[in-house]
Design a protein around this nucleic acid. Structure first.
Length: 441
RNA sequence: CGGGGCGUGGCGCAGUCUGGUAGCGCACCUGCUUUGGGAGCAGGAUGUCGGAGGUUCGAAUCCUCUCGCCCCGACCA
């Protein structure tokens, strides 16, 4: 993509309303624009990141055996009356009346919707277990949206729902999601710590929140220091195996959200306990028959008996993750994208577009890289060098390739790593070879 | 929902107290010069001062109502 043609409205100054670094950088880097309180448009650069985050979430859900569906944003109030939550949910639920005076709502979550689907379609224990997920926009009419897309009213969320015959099966489903989440966040380079959490309005008795430690986090959390020294999960997970031993291993260190943590009962001595703030990027719940019973989601068991489905739900804040990634990956100059979610693999800077040799060298390299399947953002604008460097650092692509008169004369280009600032001059062929090897299409 | 703050050109702000016909920096347009870390000079364009009503000869400025946004707290799969 040529930057001269790209819609990338950068801001040189911090918008006054943005208080935390991810919000400031998302606005300055032209990723998002606010529409109204807690509601945002995603511009090309931001949407690219959102899609890449979504893709990783999807791949890991699929890998774990969950199946993707897509449920609507608008739901009938009737469904929520069945579970009893229509009145309980309060003003956070956006209620809408259609032209026929039917009560509708913009879904803040989808337990009722998915339970109704499964209830109507699955009648036998033979059809279990099932885990269905979708990635869909949600709306929660927060009293006070803030921090950009970190706590918006409208947000993109992956929510999965598991259906099992008994509690043991539900725990197996829970464990699968537990590891799918560890892998999902690890692939983004995030250390997300699973912490014991309250179940809140979802109900139930087992829940973990996946928390990224950050000063700008909204909630206070507590964990054993060992968590900070543990490598994030990188290895494969066999989802057909019994994951319980591995689950115990990965929960052996104490970690709890502020709601659950009780200093008097904490098993970890103070010198090994870390008190920090955290960003919740995912939460998993086991809640048994809380929805299946009132909604009549039952199957016939082996003996013909009626069995209420054992359920769990599993959420990942996809749009929030984009902000969380920035909170975890930035410096004074801007964003530093992990390669797995970067909007482009590298930025190609032509320092002298007016110079015929530089232009030819840059155009040629751009064509070669694009032809090799490397995603490149090519800054071919007439701007001063400093402005180009600043813009490229701000948007945070993992690598920068700089073409200027010096290198062109010597037959080299300069490669700069955004994260380390490390620079080296390379022959063009070597650069192309390295890029295609590091990031094969 | 309690408390506080802010709405003036795309962004950041001054001007409001003390009413007199809107200004600065950046960004934008044109030209020339520049070109390895947000260039310089010259010229230019851009505003229903959030909205409505009122007071006044005259309102960004005073009064009333209203809308929106932000911050702290409470709230929060």
């Amino acid at each position: 993509m040529r930057l001269s043609q790209y819609f990338l409205p950068l801001l040189r100054e911090n918008p006054s309303e943005a208080q935390i670094v991810s919000h400031r950088l998302m606005l300055r880097a032209g990723m998002i624009r606010q529409s109204s309180a807690g509601i945002y448009s995603w511009l090309p650069l931001g949407l690219r990141v959102l899609k890449r985050v979504e893709a990783i979430v999807r791949e890991e859900q699929d890998r774990s055996g969950a199946q993707e569906i897509l449920m609507p944003t608008l739901q009938p109030a009737e469904l929520w009356r069945e579970s009893g939550r229509y009145d309980d949910y309060g003003k956070e639920m956006l209620r809408i009346t259609d032209r026929h005076e039917r009560e509708m709502l913009y879904g803040p979550t989808n337990e009722e919707q998915v339970t109704a689907i499964v209830r109507d379609a699955i009648k036998s224990y033979r059809d279990l277990p099932k885990n269905l997920y979708h990635i869909q926009w949600k709306f929660r009419d927060e009293v006070r949206p803030r921090f950009g897309v970190m706590r918006g009213r409208e947000f993109l969320m992956k929510d999965a729902y598991s259906f099992d015959l008994d509690a043991a099966g539900a725990k197996r489903a829970y464990n699968k999601m537990f590891f799918a989440y560890l892998r999902t966040f690890a692939r983004m380079g995030l250390r997300a710590i699973p912490m014991r959490a309250e179940t809140g309005p979802i109900g139930g008795d087992l829940s973990h929140e996946f928390i990224i430690l950050a000063e700008t986090g909204e909630s206070e959390v507590f964990c054993e220091r060992a968590w900070l020294e543990t490598d994030i999960l990188a290895e494969e997970v066999d989802y057909d195996a019994d994951l319980e031993p591995r689950f115990r291993h990965w929960t052996r260190h104490y970690a709890a959200t502020g709601d659950v943590h009780d200093p008097a009962k904490c098993p970890v001595p103070a010198d090994r306990l870390v008190t920090a703030r955290g960003i919740e990027v995912g939460q998993i719940f086991y809640f048994g028959t809380k929805y299946s019973r009132p909604m009549g989601a039952v199957v016939a068991g082996p003996g013909g008996e009626e069995i209420a489905l054992e359920m769990g739900s599993y959420g990942v804040g996809v749009s929030r993750l984009v902000a969380a990634l920035i909170e975890a990956n930035h410096d004074d100059n801007g964003i530093i994208w992990p390669e797995s979610v970067a909007p482009f693999r590298l930025g190609l800077i032509n320092l002298r577009p007016a110079d015929a040799k530089c232009r030819e060298a840059a155009d040629t390299l751009y064509a070669r890289l694009a032809g090799a399947g490397v995603s490149v953002l090519y800054d071919d604008r007439e701007e001063s060098p400093g402005a180009k460097f600043a813009a490229m650092d701000l948007i945070g692509l993992p690598d920068q390739v700089i073409i200027g008169p010096r290198g062109v004369a010597a037959g080299t280009v300069e490669l700069k790593r955004r994260r380390t600032g490390e620079r080296q001059d390379l022959p063009v062929d070597a650069l192309v070879a390295r890029m295609t090897a590091e990031f094969p299409s």
